[in-house]
Design a protein around this nucleic acid. Structure first.
Length: 379
DNA sequence: AAACATCCCAACCGCAGATTA
DNA sequence: TTAATCTGCGGTTGGGATGTT
């Protein structure tokens, strides 16, 4: 039997709520309390779906909602939590009093995800480079038209127009560093390094599905090589002040505490997942990758590059029964979350302290890199 | 001033887990 | 035990707002 509709849809009003409707809803909830959303519209005399009433109340009319812009501290929390748990907007919202999941979701989609998405860059054609992010901050966007983002307008009302356009590559690239490109051992490697809820708290391999599916789930660019290539020159893209985060990961990103970004390229447009060859530290190394937001295939941590799509992916290690890192769907994963949620979250809040926490989990955290990455994202 | 491009967010939709009868 | 219902969540979209050309 098909699922019954949440409410009788015929004759119900849709679209923006009017002030009168808001008043009715507020008064009704004030006198009757929340809940019984299905019967609320009828009882309150609203021509709205109960679901719509609930949403309106939760996201807009509740008294304890915080108005105004997302603060940098809140943004910091959002970034850190999203890097850890992915699109769990309600969970993230739970850490931000007065903010709703919808608000955070919108903020992520309109501000933060774009920041990361525009960080894209072609992988192969450039020599290894070091970017001075401090300089990049001052590099204007190359947009041709359209509306300036509100965030940008808030930050700088002379946005774009009064800022001289950067023409010289040297303005955005501090130096070119020659390194020996790392050669992959396998040709069919697929990157899965973006810590979209991943790395640390990734669902099982089966649930991960295709790249597109994961992109859809996470609202994040999937850094898989078969993605449409965005072929722009190194500085052309840098004029946007951003690189693809996934590209950076794929190119062996090194982000130091000063915000300098080192990218050592690989020349076959392959991206990789780094993991350890030590079973006992699989989970921890994943944490390190996601926490540090950097990977180095030559790291001395017994690291080896493995295709995440293969049976050797770190996730598959979990699936092998050694550990199931499914956040909600497994006993062990549930245990980890329940028992060590505080540790994980405290690591997110306080890097200095979190190092110890993660040590307890068997991992290592490069706090300086984490801080630098967050600082950059907030820039 | 008009057309166009883009941003942004409120609201909708469908799904899934929890609860109830 | 099962179906119906409720509730919450995450993805998506419509359209107003606004900057650029």
């Amino acid at each position: 039997m098909g699922r019954a509709p949440c409410c009788e849809k015929v004759g119900l009003k849709k679209g923006r709520w009017t002030a009168e409707e808001d008043d009715i809803l507020i008064k009704y909830i004030q006198s009757n309390g929340e809940g019984s959303w299905r019967s609320l519209p009828k009882n309150a005399g609203l021509l709205r779906c109960g679901k719509s009433c609930r949403l309106r109340w939760i996201n807009y009319l509740r008294g304890d909602l915080k108005r105004g812009n997302i603060s940098s501290e809140e943004e910091d929390i959002i970034i850190k939590l999203h890097a850890s748990i992915g699109n769990k907007w309600s969970l993230i919202a739970g850490q931000l009093p007065g903010r709703t999941d919808n608000e955070i979701k919108n903020y992520w989609n309109s501000h933060l995800s774009r920041k990361i998405d525009t960080f894209r860059r072609p992988i192969s054609q450039t020599p290894p480079i070091v970017f001075n992010l401090a300089k990049m901050d001052s590099v204007p966007s190359k947009r041709k038209g359209g509306r300036t983002s509100r965030a940008a307008m808030k930050k700088n009302k002379t946005y774009n127009r009064l800022t001289p356009k950067v023409k010289e590559k040297d303005n955005c690239i501090d130096s070119v560093k020659e390194t020996t490109p790392w050669q992959p051992e396998q040709d069919d490697m697929v990157l899965d390094t973006w810590p979209q809820g991943g790395g640390m708290l990734d669902p099982s391999e089966e649930e991960r599905g295709s790249c597109e599916e994961r992109e859809s789930r996470n609202s994040m660019p999937c850094p898989v090589v078969e993605r449409e290539a965005e072929m722009v020159g190194p500085c052309e893209e840098l004029e946007n002040g951003m690189l693809s985060f996934s590209d950076i990961i794929g190119n062996e990103l090194l982000l130091d505490a000063n915000g300098n970004l080192t990218v050592t390229g690989n020349d076959d447009q392959k991206n990789y997942l780094v993991t350890s060859d030590s079973n006992s530290t699989k989970m921890d190394d994943q944490m390190e990758v996601s926490g540090n937001l950097s990977s180095n295939g030559e790291s001395g941590n017994n690291a080896e590059w493995l295709p995440c799509s293969s049976s050797h992916s770190p996730i598959s290690y979990f699936d092998d029964g050694r550990i199931d890192w499914d956040l909600e769907g497994s006993v062990l994963g549930q245990w980890i979350w329940e028992e060590q949620e505080d540790q994980v979250l405290s690591w997110l809040w306080d890097c200095d302290k979190g190092g110890d926490d993660l040590q307890n989990l068997g991992g290592e955290v490069d706090c300086e890199r984490q801080k630098a990455m967050v600082a950059w994202l907030l820039s």
